[in-house]
Design a binder for these strands. Structure first.
Length: 340
DNA sequence: AACCGACTCAACCGCGGACGA
DNA sequence: ATCGTCCGCGGTTGAGTCGGT
């Protein structure tokens, strides 16, 4: 296979040399510029037809990987010339970045990754390459495929693209995010500025616990009247706390600067979400993790939707939970994006 | 077993931005 | 300022696979 390709390369080069030598030299008044251009175009076509398309073979992979490993990335057209690969530079770059890079993760997206993609899409729209920067080991292509598949599924199921109440995220444009049509994204109209339109709140203390599903949301009873969550139906404010309410005390010194004073109240206590909570436990993170499984390949939104009866007596908690789980991670992401 | 539709994923294509001549 | 080249991005396509009938 390799030798065949090498032979083809040599044949092509010979043809090229012959044709170039046939080209009129400077000062040759026998041919005009138009004819010259036709020959050049013909050469380009010849070259294109010589280039291989379609799936990469293991041999091609080996050649490309060896070359990039020793010479580094970049100059993809040079790669083709130096290796004899019958692939255009673009194809080489794509193959390397999407499949041969040593730092690539393989396999299905984890639950955390899926959640992150959803959050990032809510934040920045179809900016797959930017999203890939936030998901180490994942390529823009993978993320794009994941999202398109998810979008199709949810459309068919009649579900919104984003979790309910996600519009709270976009303070400047609160009604624009949760569209079923992904092309109508909140931030698509203002590319480049999207990352700065997300909430200013920074919930650094409430990042995913051990990279797992966020497990805590503030109890309504301590929600400040004028908080972001004020959009809640007022009737919800009188609901009873779930029996598994957990009171936890956490250091929130880092939050003091980024939150309004009236948030201090609810920062004092947070509780774990309803699903499968072991009553009396004081380890919130373990509960969140156990309730959703570890490493299960589930759509986090579908999964939440199917938590079912555990939420039914506490609708406002579910709503808050959805808001909170989106907010806490996006805030950290937007923080980083904003610094770029 | 055969067929068919849904799904996944790798790869291609076209476009636009960056950059140097 | 213009042009050509290279590179990266996002959209799209098509082959292969899977699951249901």
């Amino acid at each position: 296979m390799i030798s065949a390709m090498a032979v083809m390369s040599i044949i092509f080069l010979l043809i090229k040399v012959v044709v170039i030598s046939w080209l009129p030299q400077e000062g040759d008044n026998g041919k005009d510029d138009q004819e010259d251009q036709l020959v050049v175009d013909h050469l380009a076509e010849e070259e294109d037809s010589f280039l291989k398309k379609g799936p990469w073979t293991a041999e091609e992979d080996a050649i490309l990987a060896a070359y990039v490993t020793s010479n580094g990335v970049g100059n993809w057209n040079i790669v083709r010339k130096n290796t004899g690969l019958a692939r255009c530079g673009k194809s080489c770059r794509l193959r390397w970045t999407n499949h041969l890079r040593p730092d690539l993760k393989k396999g299905a997206f984890t639950q955390e990754e899926q959640l992150k993609v959803i959050q990032l899409h809510a934040l920045m729209g179809n900016k797959w390459a930017r999203m890939a920067q936030e998901l180490p080991g994942r390529t823009d292509n993978e993320i794009k495929n994941f999202w398109n598949t998810r979008q199709k599924k949810r459309k068919r199921a009649g579900l919104p693209l984003y979790p309910e109440d996600i519009e709270v995220l976009n303070v400047d444009n609160p009604q624009s995010i949760n569209q079923n049509d992904s092309t109508q994204h909140a931030n698509d109209s203002q590319p480049g500025t999207s990352s700065h339109n997300v909430p200013e709140l920074v919930f650094n203390n409430y990042k995913l616990v051990n990279g797992k599903h966020p497990s805590c949301v503030p109890p309504i009873s301590v929600m400040p009247e004028n908080s972001t969550f004020e959009q809640q139906d007022n009737s919800d404010k009188q609901v009873m706390h779930p029996p598994h309410l957990q009171i936890m005390h956490r250091s929130h010194e880092q939050l003091q600067d980024s939150l309004p004073n009236d948030y201090n109240g609810y920062l004092e206590s947070i509780f774990c979400p309803p699903p499968k909570i072991v009553e009396g436990s004081d380890d919130c993170s373990m509960q969140g993790e156990s309730s959703l499984g570890n490493g299960e390949n589930l759509d986090p939104i579908m999964n939440q939707d199917t938590l079912g009866d555990t939420w039914k007596d506490f609708p406002s908690y579910k709503s808050l939970y959805n808001k909170y789980m989106i907010m806490e991670d996006i805030s950290s992401i937007s923080d980083r994006v904003g610094r770029r």
